[in-house]
Simulated assay, not measured.
Amino acid sequence: MKKIINLFYHAPVAMGILEVNTLRLDMANPAMLQLLRREETVLGSKLLDFLPEIAEQPYLRQIYDVFRTGRPFVDRGTEFYRSYNGKMETIYVDYSYTAIQSRNSKVTSILVVATDVCEREINKLYMEESDRNLRAMVMSAPVAMAVFKGREFHIQSVNNRMLDLWNNDVNISIRELEHVFHNGVSYTTEINRICYSYTPMRDASGNTTGVMMIGNKKD
């Protein structure tokens, strides 16, 4: 059991366990707390008490369906809205619910597994050339983000978080952008305690047509 718990807490994906009668969060690994933007103090609290915004989303109904039927539920690339510092953020997640049963086959808890797939979904929108949806996703992203299009690296979308990291100066070096664009590979670098990751954006034929840049400031 100790080994299983250790694997749970160190899993690279977000994992949590909800008690079904009250939707109390009995367990959550660091990845889940990070995805929810909540502190460890929420453990032992009811889901609606520390994440009230979930009431207007489809997740509660899905959880109760798993509780009622015992059948797992899986979905991909779904919008998830969470509040943080008084603002609503939008991310995209792959997630699943799995019933945990007692010895008499009664469902007592729900295992929640989730992965943040914002980069994948943004790339999908980029491939679909849905500029308005892409801009909306970038602007509401909970991290600093910018999308550069074409060989000239015109800024297609950039959110305020990224502008804050740049101090409103967009005259950044394009060396990393050129490396990612021409080689079609991701790249990560650190500048002034800010970690920047670059991901190639591709069209339906697999050709690199732009670069997505995400920035995270180290504490």
Rank of each mutant, 00 (worst) to 15 (best):
E53M: 03
V211D: 01
P200C: 02
L165W: 01
E176S: 15
V66Q: 03
D131F: 04
V42W: 03
T69N: 08
V117Y: 00
K87E: 08
K46F: 09
S83I: 14
Y187R: 13
Y9D: 09
I5F: 10
D116R: 05
N85I: 03
D131Y: 09
N29R: 04
R135P: 11
I191T: 12
Y59G: 02
F50I: 07
I172S: 04
I63N: 03
N6P: 05
I4T: 13
F80H: 07
Q101W: 06
D219S: 15
L165I: 12
S205R: 11
M32W: 07
S130I: 06
K46M: 14
V13F: 05
L23P: 04
L23K: 06
D49A: 11
I174V: 13
R24Q: 13
S205M: 14
V143S: 13
R24P: 05
S109P: 05
N133D: 09
D65N: 12
K106A: 15
N104F: 07
G16S: 11
L23N: 04
Y196E: 04
W166D: 08
S102M: 06
G16H: 03
M27N: 06
M1Q: 11
E190V: 13
N207G: 13
E40W: 01
N168Y: 09
S96K: 12
Y59A: 04
I194F: 00
N104P: 00
T209R: 13
V112N: 10
E190Y: 04
M145H: 00
D94V: 00
L36K: 06
T115N: 13
M212R: 03
S157H: 05
E129I: 08
N21W: 05
S197E: 14
Y64C: 09
A99R: 04
I91Y: 01
S205P: 00
L177P: 08
G77F: 01
N133Q: 08
S130E: 10
L165H: 09
A144F: 06
Y59L: 10
Y198F: 12
I91E: 10
R24H: 08
A204C: 10
R202V: 14
I122R: 06
L163N: 10
R82N: 06
Y95P: 03
V185D: 12
R76P: 01
L48M: 11
R103A: 14
M213K: 02
Q101K: 15
V211L: 02
P30D: 11
D116Y: 01
H10F: 11
S109G: 12
R61P: 00
N167P: 03
P12A: 03
N171P: 03
K124P: 03
A204I: 11
D75Y: 09
L43C: 02
R193W: 05
E53Q: 05
F73V: 06
